[in-house]
Design a binder for these strands. Structure first.
Lengths: 141, 141
DNA sequence: TTTACTGCAAATAATTTGCAAAACT
DNA sequence: AGTTTTGCAAATTATTTGCAGTAAA
């Protein structure tokens, strides 16, 4: 989903477009990584001082609820957000070393279909998080 | 996984068995629901005053890392823990109304095999969380 | 008897909230 | 004009940590 598509989508769903929201979406769309509210705030501070951390939180929450970004909680106590633009993937997180492996999510397609058929539930399968033990840590244990 | 199996497993992996740990495991094993650290603390307070919230946190973290319980973050800002005893399932969480639907996880079996083959990653598929939009909220939006 | 675990209290870290002012539509 | 959204500051909530004492193995 591109910057323009998100802006259009927000307009369409009756949300207002503010400079703050534009900046936050811009940072998200151009990031290679998943970002926390703090990450985005720090990034924007470099260029402007006209944004507040609370606004970043409120905007991210709104974007997530409206389906424009995904949110992952990686057992670090903070939420990480990303747009869907840089390709969907599964996060495999090792519960021992906490390292994250990113994996192609096509294997989840049947699951998406299944819950749609059975429960009429539209799953976001862009960024799913799954815990487990990685290869290296299995050797240690 | 039963109470006894967890206790044995902990012994086997060199962890000490303390009354506090026994009580926490007992509460987890006998619960129908997923519990937060606070939930467990409150439950134990009814019967004893010899347990500290910090101990509950430390024990849950240890149990999770060692693979005896699963941990889910349901976008509520708190972590919820459960043993595997009352049957594995997928949490489908509606990002609009935040209601949780529990679904049979057998559809994830191929995924577990796949990541094991390709990355030697042992996934915990007992309690996976997936966000999306539920049937009722789709109608509203 | 060694080392892990606990309680206590204080600290931290992430996120939320109330409210008046500002700014979208 | 009317309603959202923002900034600010303070509050809240969940979780973590240091340390000295206690108790498993």
């Amino acid at each position: 989903m591109s910057y323009q598509e998100i802006i259009q989508g927000l307009r369409h769903s009756g949300h207002r477009i503010t400079p703050q929201r534009e900046m936050i979406i811009d940072v998200l769309v151009h990031s290679e990584r998943h970002l926390s509210a703090e990450d985005i705030y720090v990034e924007l501070e470099k260029y402007t001082n006209t944004i507040d951390l609370a606004t970043v939180y409120r905007t991210l929450d709104m974007l997530w609820e409206a389906g424009f970004v995904s949110c992952n909680e990686m057992h670090t106590g903070k939420k990480l957000y990303a747009t869907h633009k840089h390709g969907p993937h599964i996060h495999l997180i090792c519960r021992h070393c906490l390292r994250v492996l990113e994996v192609d999510p096509s294997i989840l397609d049947p699951l998406g279909q299944d819950v749609l058929n059975r429960f009429d539930f539209k799953a976001d399968l862009q960024h799913v998080t799954i815990f487990g033990i990685c290869s290296a840590c299995q050797a240690l244990l």
